[in-house]
Design a protein around this nucleic acid. Structure first.
Lengths: 249, 249
DNA sequence: CGATGCTTTGAACTTGCTCAACCCTTGTGG
DNA sequence: CCACAAGGGTTGAGCAAGTTCAAAGCATCG
C-alpha cells in the first residue's frame, strides 16, 4: 500500500521499468543503470496536482523540466473569447519544458486533465543516455504534433477520434498501461472536443456512432478499442516511432 | 547579374544579413563572423529545386540538414486517398532536418511550393553560436506547429487565413522580405487549402470576403495586409518569438 | 436531498463541401 | 499568328458535416 502507483501493485514482480514513466523512457533507448537510478530517485520526490490545475503558464518563467509519472496532462492554448485548443496530450513518461537551451519562458500552458503525479526530470549532465533519451522523447513529441495537425486538417470527426485513440493506445502500451486493448481514459467529452477541434455535442454523437459500429467501448473512465489493427488501417493511422539507430527529426 | 538572389540586387549596399536566410538566422541570436562566414560559404553551393518537387521523403534516409535560401517549401503529409495536409510552411532561413541526434530518417516529406534555392546547412561543430541559433530556430518551428494546431482546431476559415497570413508576414519581415506590408506570395489557392484544412473552393470564397472587407489584397503572386495590427487584434494572433535570453521551449 | 459535473437528446441553423461548369492567362506547337 | 492545352481562379446550386441553444437524464457526493 506504500507504492506510489496503486494501479501497478498487482504486477507480479518488480521488473525493470515497472514504473510507467521510466518504462517509457527506457523504451526510447538503452539507459545505464546509473541513469535509471537517477530517474527512480527523482520519482521519489513526486508532487501531485489535481484536475484542472495548471503546471506551467505560457510566457511565465519555468523552474525546470518536469516528468509526468502518472495521470494525463495537456498543452493547451486559450483564446480571448474562451475557445480552447488542446495541442497535445501528455502521458506518463512525457517531459514538460525540455530543451537544450537556457529557457526562461514556457511556450505553452500545461494543465492537468486528471489528477497527476509528476517530478522534476533529472538533469542529464554526465548521463549521456538520459540526454539522448530526452532528445528522442522531444522528437517523438514533435511527431505527435505533426500527426495532430493532419488529424485536425484532413480527417472527419470519426476518423479524428479513432486516430487519436490509436495514438494514445500506442503511447500508453509503451508504458504498460494497456491491458487487452483496454485502457484507463480520464478525458471527458468536453476535453476530447477541445483536443479534436469539435463541439462537445458533436463528440458525443460521434462517439455513439463509433460505439454502435462496434469500434470502441468508452465509459466509466475506460476506453477499449476493438480490432485496433483494422481501425488503424481504416483511418490510415501511422505509428510515430523512433527509427533505426537514432531519433527521427 | 551573378548574385544568387536577384530580388535583392537593388539593395543599396551589401549590409550584414543582406541574404534573407542569413538575416533570419542572425536575428535569432548573435553569431560570430566566423559562423556567418560559414553560412555564406555554404550558401555559395546552392542548389535549385522546381515547384512540386520533393526535397526529402518521409521515412527515407536523409543526407544532412538543409537551409532554405530562397523560395517557399512545406512539410506535407499525404493520405492514402489523396488528401494532403501542409503541416508547416518553410521560408528562407528555415532549416530542414535539423536535430541533435544521429538521424537516419526524415520525419516528414518536404516539397518545394515555389522554385526554391537551398544549400547544406553548415555543421555547427566548433561554432557554438550556430548551434544555439539552430536550436532557437527549431524551438520557433515548434511554436509554429502549435500555432497551426490552434488555427486548424479553433479558428473559422476567415480567421485561419488571416492568422496564417500574419504569421507569414512576421516571418518574412525578419528576412527583410516585406515591403510596406506587401510580400511575394507564391501559394496557389489549392496549396492554401491544403495548409488550412479547407477545400480550394472555400478558400476562394473566403479570400473574396477578406478582399471585399478591405483586409487584404492578393493576386499576381503578391499579398498585402492592410492594417495588420488591427487584423492581429481581431483574430487574436500572437507572434511567436524568442523571449529574453534564450530559446523558448 | 439537492448540488454538481458529465452525458445525452432534439430541432434549427451555419459553415464548409461537392460537383460541375466556366473564365482567364500563359505558354506551346502548328 | 492562331489554336489549343494547361493551370489557376471564379461561380452556382445542392448537400453534408458540424454547430448552437436549450433541456433533460444520470450518476456521484456531501
Amino acid at each position: 500500500m506504500t507504492a506510489p502507483f496503486p494501479v501497478y501493485q498487482h504486477s507480479p514482480r518488480p521488473v525493470r521499468g515497472r514504473v510507467p514513466a521510466i518504462r517509457r523512457l527506457a523504451s526510447l533507448g538503452p539507459i545505464s543503470s546509473e541513469a535509471e537510478r537517477a530517474l527512480m530517485r527523482a520519482a521519489t520526490a513526486s508532487r501531485a496536482l489535481a484536475a484542472p490545475r495548471e503546471l506551467t503558464r505560457e510566457g511565465r518563467p519555468v523552474s525546470g523540466t518536469f516528468l509526468i509519472l502518472a495521470g494525463w496532462a495537456a498543452r493547451v492554448r486559450l483564446l480571448e473569447d474562451g475557445r480552447r485548443q488542446i495541442m497535445s496530450v501528455l502521458l506518463p513518461g512525457d517531459l514538460i519544458g525540455h530543451c537544450h537551451q537556457p529557457r526562461p519562458m514556457a511556450v505553452s500552458t500545461v494543465v492537468a486533465l486528471s489528477e497527476i503525479s509528476y517530478c522534476a526530470a533529472p538533469q542529464p549532465i554526465g548521463l549521456p543516455d538520459l540526454d539522448r533519451v530526452y532528445a528522442i522523447s522531444h522528437a517523438l513529441e514533435e511527431a505527435h504534433l505533426l500527426a495532430h495537425i493532419t488529424r485536425l486538417g484532413r480527417l472527419s470527426a470519426g476518423e479524428r477520434m479513432l486516430d487519436l485513440f490509436l495514438e494514445l493506445r500506442d503511447r500508453l502500451s509503451i508504458c504498460g498501461l494497456v491491458e487487452e486493448g483496454s485502457m484507463a481514459f480520464p478525458l471527458t467529452q468536453e476535453m476530447l472536443a477541445d483536443a479534436m477541434g469539435l463541439t462537445p455535442v458533436h463528440v458525443n454523437r460521434t462517439l455513439q456512432l463509433l460505439r454502435r459500429h462496434g469500434d470502441i467501448a468508452l465509459g466509466n473512465g475506460r476506453l477499449t478499442l476493438f480490432a485496433p489493427e483494422a481501425l488503424a488501417l481504416r483511418v490510415g493511422h501511422r505509428v510515430a516511432q523512433v527509427t533505426g539507430h537514432g531519433a527521427e527529426c
